[in-house]
Design a binder for these strands. Structure first.
Lengths: 230, 230
DNA sequence: CACTGTAAATATACAGTGTTTATTTACAGT
DNA sequence: ACTGTAAATAAACACTGTATATTTACAGTG
């Protein structure tokens, strides 16, 4: 049999491939992702996957975009669960949601922000829309603070000109925010990312340091530093 | 010829293997590290490597330990270049040295703190000595601040009991410091790590945000937050 | 000097990977 | 009914890490 009849075929094979990939990633980690293993599980041959993804990296990119989207949904939902004028509450909620999502889906987190696939480098252009949107929850709150003059950006390094075009592209997907809000957001993001990535990768030695408590302290530090008139 | 005469053999093959590995990592990144490629370059066969390293992971572990040692040397040297009583200066120097080393050897940084090798998980017990030492420069300065009552740890979460044994092991390699100094150091570390890893991995979108300036701002934030009476 | 044991290398093989090419064939549209 | 296309398979290539068996250079000992 060279090609099975349509009855025995899997409908929506593209989705099935991604689902199988996610299942394998959840089980054994992103590092051991294998096209042949996916094909085995779906009872198809490996080259059949190439009808849906030009190569393995394209599949990984699709997975990353899905992960970013799920992550962004979670960030936005956590923000919108707070009252619209409770900017500090929103900032906190986004922060805790960040860690919670990472703990719930450590492999997805690693797939997005780490480099678990050998030789893979995410193509900025393709990933940007979902990535920008996932960060937009945070940026929108920082922008909200800035607009009501509650953003403390004293001493914050000024943003250099020359990248207006890329920033415009970013705004297409994330929303029309001031670049200062983006820059402050990136610093806040780097802080939570630092803690979370250490915790997830097991590089935070277990010396009695409570990850949740330390994270809470860091969220509060961010608020103390960047929010005026608490 | 089954085994070449000693004249044509490479002396100190163990070191030669590691050097070749580093060269390949510097050229094409840690992800594409390959025993067979190393063997090809050294004009030996791949299984010969197994006389010096039980498997690929053992070689990676050896590389990581070397990288930690080099990193630790650099951290300690940058601290000792400042006057012994200039604790804030030392804190700054260590911070800038951290980023500089990472920019100078991005692949080494990724090898230590990322997960570029598929399926590889560093064995804590073997890596701990060099890892603890590399962090000890920072901890020693924080401890110095604590001793002269200049460490601002107000609101810092208390360390939970139950891990005294592991902490004792750590102190064997890093020095006899208070666990509060270690905990504060880990938060500082997570901050610089967050920024540096974003910058190195190219995940910090180039929207005119100057990496060096942002890093300098973050170093200053750490000092403002954790040092009393500047 | 001859002998022997060990250690270090090779040769070979196995199972796995991503990917390419050629081939077959089920299905859709005319 | 015919034909073109798209989707699958089959087979092969070039890799990878690793295990096993074999060979042999060298060191130590009588």
């Amino acid at each position: 049999m060279v090609r099975p009849s349509k009855k025995t075929q899997i409908p929506n094979l593209q989705e099935a491939i991604k689902e199988t990939a996610w299942r394998q990633i959840a089980e054994t980690g992103a590092a051991t992702l294998s096209l042949r293993a996916i094909a085995r599980e779906l009872n198809i041959t490996a080259p059949a996957i190439y009808n849906y993804f030009p190569d393995r990296d394209a599949l990984v990119t699709a997975l990353i975009i899905d992960a970013y989207t799920s992550f962004g949904d979670y960030q936005i939902a956590s923000r919108d669960a707070k009252a619209e004028d409770d900017l500090v509450g929103q900032l906190q909620a986004i922060g805790f949601a960040y860690r919670q999502w990472a703990l719930d889906f450590p492999q997805r987190y690693e797939l997005i922000f780490g480099t678990p696939i050998p030789g893979y480098q995410a193509p900025m252009m393709e990933v940007l829309p979902s990535a920008a949107r996932s960060l937009s929850a945070l940026v929108s709150v920082v922008e909200g603070l800035r607009v009501v003059n509650r953003l403390n950006s004293r001493g914050f390094p000024s943003v250099q000109p020359g990248y207006e075009e890329q920033f415009e592209t970013w705004k297409t997907y994330a929303g029309d925010y001031d670049i200062l809000s983006l820059a402050v957001s990136m610093l806040i993001w780097s802080r939570v990312h630092g803690l979370v990535s250490l915790e997830i990768s097991g590089n935070m030695p277990p010396f009695g340091v409570d990850g949740a408590a330390l994270y809470q302290y860091e969220i509060r530090s961010n608020i103390d530093q960047f929010v005026k008139g608490i």
